[in-house]
Amino acid sequence: MEIAITGTNAVTYPNLHIWDWRIAIYLFLGGLSAGLMVMSSISNLRKGKDVAMDKACCVRGPLIAPLILAVGMFFIWLDVERKFNTFWFFLTFQPLSPMSWGSWGVGIIIPLSFCYGLSTVPEEMRGMLKYDILKLLSAKLHPYMRRLAMINFGLGIFLGIYTGVLLSAFVARPLWNSSILPLLFLNSALSTGAALLIMMAKRPSVKLFFTKIDIWLIFAEIVIIFLFFYGHYTSTGPQRLSIMPFFSFTSEYFFYAASIILIWILFPLALVLKLMEVKEEHGDTLTSSQLFKMKLSAVMVLLGGLIIRLAFLYAGQLSRLS
């Protein structure tokens, strides 16, 4: 028992600090996995694909996506206070709780996405699978690859939206409580997924294909971020106050102001770099300067995605209704 009872009040306990970088990493990796699922599905469903040449997008991408999600899940498990009680997530379904939707959703997505990954492995590449059971599964699932790709596309969209809904469902946190946030997170998820595939792809034509997709996604992301802040600024008092850390250049809120400046530098710069890439003449092989620009812009997009998750997660916990 404390000797002095002061009570918790605005002075002694000003802000909620419950979720930290572990949740931000989970949101980022969940989004990246969602984007990879969608983009790798597009890779396998589009006409003119060449699995032997586009191994990175058509085979490795689908196989990596569930692994990235599993790593993200590990981070959320690290954040949970009672780690050995997590089985309770799967003994009930709470239809009003986004986290319940998420735990069941991720529980379904990881195995289905893994099945899709296995189905994409063509016969001549099955030797790279270590275990016989995986080779057998891959052979059995291969005929259903297109259907699994379509399902995977839908699941990727669900996962991308879910990472935003997880935060936007809290009426108590005005910064998060916006229907634009799930759209922003979905857009960012797709953009980071495309960026990762640009880095992984070997063929210049595939790299350019995803670069063109990413141009539209980055443009949309810039518009959505602007609308998010504009919507909050023109909304109620608590919502207007909730975005102020991003525009307060004081030492207390330096991280938030820096993050918004970084986002406004990284995305437009990545957009310009990508526009330069698509305008250039490309042969069968890319020059080292072209490769550098592609990779640099992809890294910028990935970094921007991570900054968005970190900044929004922390800033949301500073915001309150009263």
Binding site: L16, I18, W19, V80, N85, M99, F170, A172, Q317
Partner: peptide, 11 residues
């Protein structure tokens, strides 16, 4: 499970 969703949800 200690996920803290309720803490974030309480206005």
């Amino acid at each position: 499970v200690g996920c803290k969703a309720c803490l974030a949800a309480c206005p």
